[in-house]
């Protein structure tokens, strides 16, 4: 792990809901779980988050962050785009893909596409590809790029990403259901080891292993497309 102050602050910045990339509009199916009364208390939420981390965030998104980070560090654009393509292929619900690519485009605009980094072997390649719609530009992929550019280690990048996923989902839960702030913090505390476990397990995984197994979550994500009440984009 780095102890570089600049990288540490970047990790905080990337994991902060203050980052204006529309994270607060995504519930990744949670709105539908709550629409269908499937999440009633903190324990339900804890179980759901743990399952998400073990089956989607770890084996899928963490693998994408880690491989994007590695590709970026090597300056290998082709490899980077392959990570993006694979993530697109394994993310089943349409709304999950849309939330992720919209946030990815915004993060790219904000932190990759700036004129200061538009040199041939830097951000321009991936930023151009996203802008021209020649690659989907998923959030975990752009996140890996930004993290690599700004000196976060691969594991730190994965941890920051997974942590912000958890707080994003908990924030959505609080806005959709009725959860107390101390209860939410206790859920956060108890899933923290699962965040670490998922990231450590998948940080070195090969891109070809990227996959998710969360059928109920995917069904929730798809049913949400036709939900009457929609506060969230996914």
């Amino acid at each position: 792990m780095t102890t570089d102050s600049g990288s540490f602050l970047t990790a905080l910045r990337l994991a902060d809901s203050f980052l204006p990339v529309g994270g607060y509009t995504a519930s990744y199916g949670l709105e539908q779980y709550i629409n269908e009364d499937r999440i009633e208390d903190g324990d339900d939420l804890r179980d759901l988050l743990a399952a998400y981390l073990r089956r989607v965030v770890g084996p899928c998104e963490t693998v994408a962050v880690a491989n994007a980070h590695a590709a970026r560090t090597e300056g290998d654009l082709e490899r980077l785009l392959a990570v993006d393509e694979r993530l697109h292929a394994v993310t089943m619900p349409r709304e999950f893909r849309e939330s992720s690519t919209k946030a990815g485009a915004k993060l790219c605009e904000l932190l990759v596409a700036g004129d200061d980094v538009r040199t041939p072997d830097s951000g321009a390649g991936v930023a151009d590809a996203i802008e021209q719609n020649s690659t989907p530009g998923h959030y975990p992929v752009v996140f890996g790029v930004v993290a690599a550019d700004r000196g976060l280690s691969r594991l730190e990048a994965c941890l920051a990403h997974a942590y912000s996923f958890v707080t994003g989902l908990l924030g959505a839960a609080q806005r959709l259901g009725r959860f107390g702030h101390t209860e939410i913090q206790s859920v956060l505390e108890s899933v923290q080891p699962v965040v670490t476990e998922a990231c450590e397990r998948y940080v070195d995984a090969d891109v070809t292993t990227m996959s998710s197994f969360a059928p109920l979550t995917e069904i929730m994500g798809m049913r949400h497309e036709r939900a009457g009440r929609r506060l969230f984009m996914s």
């Binding site: 509009t25 995504a26 959505a172 929609r230 506060l231 969230f232």
Partner: peptide, 11 residues
């Protein structure tokens, strides 16, 4: 229609 995650002001 653009959803704002129950935070219209944030949106």
């Amino acid at each position: 229609g653009v959803e704002t995650g129950a935070c219209p002001h944030t949106g």
